[in-house]
Amino acid sequence: MATDAFVPRGPALQATPRGGIALFWQKYGSSYLFMAPFLAFFVVFVIAPVVTAMALSFTYFNVLESPRFIGWSNYKLLFLEDDVFVIAIGNTLKFAIITGPIGFFLSFMFAWLINPLKLKTPLALCFYAPSITGAVAMGVVWKIVFSGDRYGYLNNWLLGIGAIDEPYMFLAEQAAIMPVIMFVALWMSMGTGFLVFLAGLQTVPTDLYEAGKMDGIKNPLQEVWYITLPMIKPQLLFGSVMAVVAGFSVFEVATSLAGLPSPLYAGHTIVAHMYDFAFIRFEMGYATTVAVFLFALTFGLGRLLMRTLSSKNEY
């Protein structure tokens, strides 16, 4: 790239009187040039589709015919008549409220524990492994563990120690499906957040800890609270937003374990509902309505998190 295009923004240059646009370009041009490639792709492949999705939520669209405007009908159907959607919201909320905070806490705890260790790369790989293999490959492993007959590893073991008399259908009993899904999700929750925390911990200068000791920090818990957490606040914010989005868009774990649709919709989630209408029934209009609802929900919660966590001044 030609370096000439980037005008240095020194005070000397700003002092020269010029026309409005030229001055504006001189001051901010290089910033916009840096952002231009991303913004171009962002507008074409993200903004345009999101706006289209919002527009489609007011239509009946079955992919084959062109969309037909039907006003608020999809929304009315969603909130007033769709009983399955109510189940999906319940399951998703239960999942997000339980696994979100626990997963976030575990990610930080493991990252913090392994950070000072010599074997941190191999240990990090071990904890990150479930995220690498992906939900489908893991579904295979966990299905064998939770299999409903005597040959499932868990049933086999429980029968062996005499805890149960006959095999329990972990993936078919309504009461067991969500707990099993949450367990597996927690087990694979050392993903993005975990690695981001680990990278963040690397950037905390070690002399801060020594300085902290001079200032009277007595134990590791104080050290975490007064030095580590404030220093990796941006990573924590990122991790929490990711946890919220991941919690509310739970889908692959649920469907790979319980199927789609799951028995009595016991493992049905908001995204599963959306997927059902989009790619099985091809009712794209209604599917985008579900998507817009999900978007409003995660967006609201995300804003709330950002506001509470990023009180710090932005440069």
Binding site: V46, A48, P49, V50, T52, A53, L56, V241, V244, V245, F248, S249, F251, V271, M274, Y275, A278, M284, A287, T288, V290, A291, L294, F295, T298, F299, G302
Partner: peptide
């Protein structure tokens, strides 16, 4: 960031 990726894929 907060839009479920599954649906932006359709448009």
């Amino acid at each position: 960031l907060m839009f479920a990726p599954q649906v932006t894929r359709i448009p």
